[in-house]
Design a protein around this nucleic acid. Structure first.
Length: 520
DNA sequence: ATGTCC
């Protein structure tokens, strides 16, 4: 296996920054070129510098591990471009909050272990007054958690309204994604499929047949044990930072925002519901097995890991290993897609139980942990977004034929319940970031550190005074707003860099999130 | 993130 040298033609000239570059203790320097755009030159100046999005506060938020990881990612074989987003922080091999572009190689690490972890937004026709009462919101929390549970290992509970999670349906789900047949079987409105960044993923050769063959292998070799149990997790959130959140949509009072919001299907002053989750146990098993497979191959072939880090294993495109990874990623991605759409269908049912007559439409479903084949600077390449969101503006050829051809697609960015979340739309400046933005606020504290330093009573009191309810007895302390970066700094960076602009703000009214403490 | 493990 040959590795491709870094392409010197990608060495675009960057203006030298006038202020002294920010130098971290690792010796990695971030040169500032604009208010919110900077770059890290390669150690040997042999290729396109790393693009860093962030204002002063954000640039200071990147820890040394994160910066070393972005340099390692950039220097890895076949990589032509990487971007560090303002929500970037240390992850598994590559930072969470980065984009990695390669025309020749596929990397499992810069996709992540939660294949196609994504955001989705459901817009209802319920006016905000209807959920002003705490008891209504409590009833909604109960109705939703009854249908879409949280927690590791948890699957969809009792209320399935005639849905049958058979093995045959499971096979269809992971090989077809949100096909009309799958939507029909699971009670998902078929028209929601066109509100997906990708409603279905095909195999490495562009067919569903290769996925069926790969799935046969996966089931026969028991790579995924208890497939039925995994399929039973469809329609569930899982744990960690995954959540469901009831919001009030606030469209910005600007003519352009209002026009875009209309196309997106947002309703000002009405209840919406934001969800964050991925491919659950199914995707996790496939992703983890890929790391093992590739590690074995690297050892067998005697190839060094990029930067000595086995979490940066890769496969050159066209090899059986790359094909296997692409197929596994597609299978996991199809699971995540149907999982999100089913969650939205179940959430809508829950609303209809508590507030009869409620209608709701999917605004969008978009991933932040996936590799997609796109055109970057005129060249076909795999764009790995790890904790990063595609950001394509109106008029771009890739949106032709979608409802968002003229406006650009919705970008769903979770901030935190206290400071809100946003719906954005891409701007032309996103061409500088391989059509990408961040995926949220980004952690600034590790979970342990957050648990040790943050005050549980203060966190709960803050939610109480803001009248934001949650499903558990205590808000998970390691998920509290202060465990994350300042969302205003993150958004200011995105807007100042010209990547995207805000269309609407989402104000949290209640949160559904796994809590080991208060799980029932 | 996770058929969850510090």
């Amino acid at each position: 296996m040959k590795t491709k040298p870094l392409d010197p033609m990608n060495n675009i000239s960057q203006p030298l920054s006038s202020p002294a570059p920010l130098t971290k203790s690792s010796g990695i320097k971030i040169h500032q070129t604009d208010e919110a755009i900077g770059f890290i030159p390669l150690p040997d100046n042999s290729g396109k510098p790393i693009t860093v999005i962030g204002n002063d506060a954000i640039r200071n938020s990147f820890d040394d591990t994160c910066l070393q990881q972005i340099v390692n990612s950039r220097m890895s074989p076949g990589v032509t471009e990487v971007i560090l987003n303002p929500d970037g922080h240390a992850g598994y091999g590559a930072p969470i909050g980065c984009v990695m572009v390669s025309p020749t190689h596929i990397y499992p690490g810069p996709v992540g272990v939660d294949i196609k972890c994504s955001m989705s937004l459901l817009q209802t026709d319920i006016p905000e007054e209807a959920v002003a009462d705490k008891s209504v919101r409590r009833a909604l929390i109960d109705a939703i958690t009854e249908r879409t549970p949280t927690g590791a290992g948890r699957g969809t509970r009792s209320v399935k309204k005639g849905r049958k999670f058979t093995k045959e349906l499971g096979i269809q789900v992971v090989t077809e994604g949100a096909s009309p047949a799958v939507c029909e079987a699971l009670g998902i409105p078929v028209e929601w499929a066109e509100r997906c960044e990708d409603s279905a993923h095909l195999g490495h050769d562009g067919t569903a047949e290769s996925l069926r063959k790969r799935l046969d292998f996966i089931l026969e070799t028991k790579r995924v044990k208890n497939f039925g149990d995994k399929i039973g997790q469809l329609g569930s959130y899982g744990g960690g930072n995954h959540f469901g959140e009831c919001e009030i949509t606030r469209i910005l009072d600007l003519p352009s925002a209002k026009e875009t919001a209309e196309v997106f299907g947002l309703k000002d002053g009405h209840v919406s519901f934001l969800s964050h989750c991925g491919s659950r146990g199914f995707g996790n098993i496939l992703a983890c097995a890929q790391f093992k497979d590739l590690e074995t191959m690297f050892n067998k072939w005697g190839i060094p890991y990029p930067a000595g880090d086995k979490k940066l294993v890769y496969a050159p495109l066209g090899t059986p290993e790359a094909n296997a990874y692409l197929d596994d990623m597609a299978l996991g991605a199809n699971f995540a897609t149907v999982n999100h759409l089913l969650i939205n269908a179940l959430v809508l049912e829950a609303f209809q139980e508590v507030l009869p007559g409620t209608t709701g439409k999917l605004v969008y479903f978009i991933s932040h942990n996936i590799a997609r084949e796109e055109i970057v600077e005129g060249r076909k390449a795999w764009v790995h977004r790890k904790g990063a969101t595609r950001a394509v503006p109106g008029g771009h050829f890739s949106l032709a034929g979608t409802p968002f051809a003229e406006t650009g697609h919705p970008i769903l960015l979770p901030g935190n319940p206290r400071d809100g979340s946003v719906v954005m739309v891409a701007q032309g400046g996103a061409e500088r970031t391989a059509w990408s933005v961040n995926h949220g606020a980004g952690r600034q504290m590790g979970r342990k550190h957050a648990a040790q330093t943050l005050d549980q009573a203060a966190v709960d009191a803050e939610f109480d005074s803001a009248d934001i309810l949650y499903n558990s007895r205590k808000y998970p302390i390691d998920e509290s707003p202060d465990a994350y970066k300042n969302f205003a700094d993150v958004l200011n960076s995105v807007e100042a860099a010209g990547l995207a602009k805000t269309v609407a703000k989402l104000e949290a009214r209640f949160v559904i999130k796994d809590s080991a403490e208060a799980d029932d």
